[in-house]
Amino acid sequence: MDFGHVQINDPNAPAPNQRLSAASSAADSRYTRGKSTLERSLNKTKGAEVSLSAFAFMFSEMLQYAQKRVQGIQDLERKLNEFGYRVGIRMLELLVWRDKNSKRETRVLSVLYFVHTVVWKNLFGKPADSLEKSTENDDECEWLWCGAISKVTWKWGHMVRFDMISDNDPLVSRYISVPKELSQLNCNAFVAGIVEAVLDGCQFYNQQILTPFTPFPLSTPLPSPQPARVTAHTVPIDGFPFRTTILIKLDREILQREELLKP
């Protein structure tokens, strides 16, 4: 092992006491661990979990940081979404790399299933509670919001598709009680940002501008493609007052591509 800097990837290298045994105190293991988080093997997931209280504390700090720098709830949700995006884009790369027989996901359903199971499992230790396809319509999209709140009608004059990933008791906001004046806020906008990044990374843009035939004058910079819109909503049901639905809106271009990819 003369290449010290790559040694961290060697699974056979003796790992310093990584798992916290019940006997040793937390302080002990902190000193015997020896490796910083950044030097840990990327492939090791066991014993690398962060405690929920530490996360909750960090997340509350993030919320406070964000709240000082925004005006209004929408702005705050956008900011949280941005935070999530930065996490998600790295999550995606890492999870696909960890998966031995990794595939390039190109179909909507398979990537959503990936989010629902793999991403959720790695973030929260369990798959999400449901994955549903809402509606797909050419012209007018009439969508019953889980039959719970209201009936919303979209008239965009083009094809859209909604998918929903729901979590009965989202981990991110378990210790957050939202004050009355911010009742519209759902802190799972952070998770929505992660989902958005995963979709974006897998090329589920809302606006496909990278076709080789798009004429662009050389002087204009390429417009950046818009990621799929992902938002978080609180949709309480019986027994689960904090049930949150991550709503994913996929646009026409993706659906057209989906048609082409049909076997």
Binding site: L92, E93, V96, W97, S102, K103, R104, E105, T106, G201, C202, Q203, P263
Partner: peptide, 27 residues
């Protein structure tokens, strides 16, 4: 290719060189 494998195999060979490709899911 219909199967979205990350490894693309030999892309082409020119003179004495062979070029292999690999594409991650993030392109």
């Amino acid at each position: 290719i219909k199967t979205p494998d990350v490894y693309l195999g030999l892309l082409y060979a020119m003179e004495d060189l062979a070029v292999y490709g690999y594409m991650t899911n993030t392109r």
